[in-house]
Amino acid sequence: MRSLDEDLQAAVAYHGHLCMGMVLGVRMARHGMQILGIDDPLSFRDSIVYVEMDRCATDAVSVVTGCTLGRRRLKVVDYGKMAATFVNLATNEAIRVSPKIVAYPQPGEDPVVFMQSFKDEELFLWKKVFISIPPEDLPGKPLHNVVCEKCGEIVLDRREVAVDSKTFCKACVNKPYYQDI
């Protein structure tokens, strides 16, 4: 397992800057993996992480755990919370970790130095949780695909919507995030 400094350096190299979110994300990921007994997360391929925010900490969690969106091992459930759930697929164990204190360094103070004064047990709450992961959400090849009857695009992994016995993508049923020009 990398040291805390090595994880911080890797996270900053990926993300582009050092901030409290990076420090919290690195510490949260290290703490979660440690509780699950995963000593070398970068070589452990039986984990999935659900992050509850789309902020700096998410990049840090991804870098420390080796879980990425493209490999289907990082899941974003945007609750706007600084929290993450770490799942060991080999044992079906899962824990959710979140900060229990809100503390920020003074302007100009190094966030790494500031956070060193807190032990993980002071900084984080954690609890065992259960997550039922459908087969189509697991890493690996798509298990199912259909063609949207309106736009003709392929919809993977049971993300389609059935309306009046017809199959559509979510964008055709709901308002998409984009507008055609």
Rank of each mutant, 00 (worst) to 15 (best):
P134C: 13
D120R: 03
V129T: 10
V112Q: 09
C56T: 00
A29F: 08
A60N: 01
D157L: 10
V63S: 07
K127Q: 15
D120T: 04
N145S: 14
S47Q: 12
K175D: 08
D59M: 01
C19Y: 01
E160C: 04
P142D: 10
F44L: 09
F168Y: 15
T58E: 09
K170Q: 07
T58C: 06
V87Q: 09
L123N: 12
Q34V: 02
R159C: 07
L24I: 03
V112I: 15
V61T: 03
P99A: 09
R30H: 07
I48L: 11
E6Y: 04
C172Y: 06
D164H: 13
V87K: 09
V49T: 11
V147R: 14
D110E: 12
K81T: 11
E93S: 13
V97Y: 06
V163D: 07
A103W: 06
I131W: 06
D137H: 10
R27Q: 04
G32I: 07
M22P: 00
C172A: 09
L8P: 01
L138P: 05
L138F: 05
S165E: 15
I95G: 07
Q116K: 15
K170L: 08
L36H: 07
A90R: 15
R158W: 08
I101M: 10
I48W: 00
L24N: 00
D7K: 03
C151W: 07
E93K: 14
A83I: 03
H31M: 09
L24W: 00
V76K: 10
K166E: 10
G32W: 05
M28A: 02
K100N: 12
P105W: 11
F130E: 15
L123T: 08
V64E: 02
D137R: 13
I133Q: 10
L18Y: 02
D137Y: 09
M22A: 01
F118G: 01
A57F: 04
G70L: 10
I48Y: 01
M33G: 12
V155Y: 01
S132E: 15
V63P: 03
H17Y: 05
K141Y: 07
F124I: 06
L123P: 14
L24G: 00
K100D: 03
L89N: 05
W126P: 04
G16L: 06
I35G: 08
V76I: 15
L8Q: 01
T167C: 08
C148T: 10
P105G: 13
V173D: 08
L123Q: 11
Y79Q: 08
A11G: 06
F168S: 10
R159P: 03
S117V: 10
R159D: 14
R71D: 10
F168H: 10
V112F: 10
R71G: 11
D78T: 05
P41L: 07
T91P: 11
F168N: 11
Q106T: 12
I154L: 05
I48F: 00
V63E: 08
S165G: 11
V26I: 14
T91N: 07
A171V: 04
A60F: 00
M20A: 04
G152L: 04
L138Q: 06
R2E: 08
I35E: 09
P111I: 05
